[in-house]
Design a protein around this nucleic acid. Structure first.
Length: 93
DNA sequence: GCTTTGACTCTCG
DNA sequence: TCGAGAGCCAAAG
């Protein structure tokens, strides 16, 4: 996750694939638990559909909004918690 | 040690 | 196109 270049995003699926498993949920779990908040850019990890996902009911809350803002700052367009230019910013690693 | 749940994904109806 | 079900891995109860 830390290898995700700035201005790019990836999906849980891809991360799991890179891990050699299908632990999509485990990845999301690790993010949710976020063992290392400062070094883990969870906001750069999205769903296969380019959606940030549902977040503890804060899908449209302030925490997500901030991450969205961060992505936009990096050049990732986000609309309604979804990656707009998903194909362009998606990092397949 | 087994069961439940989760920021997931895929397939079928 | 949308909803429901199954599969997957890991952490918490």
């Amino acid at each position: 996750m830390k290898r995700i270049p700035k201005g790019r995003v990836t999906t849980y699926k891809i991360i799991a694939e890179r891990l050699g498993c299908r632990a999509y949920r485990a990845v999301g779990n690790a993010c949710r638990r976020n063992p290392n908040p400062p070094v883990i850019p969870c906001h750069r990890v999205v769903g296969s559909d380019g959606g940030i996902g549902g977040f503890g009911g804060e899908t449209s809350g302030s925490k997500i909004r901030k991450k969205i803002r961060l992505l936009e700052e990096e050049g990732v367009e986000v609309k309604n918690n979804k990656i707009v230019n998903f194909d362009r910013v998606l990092c397949r690693l």
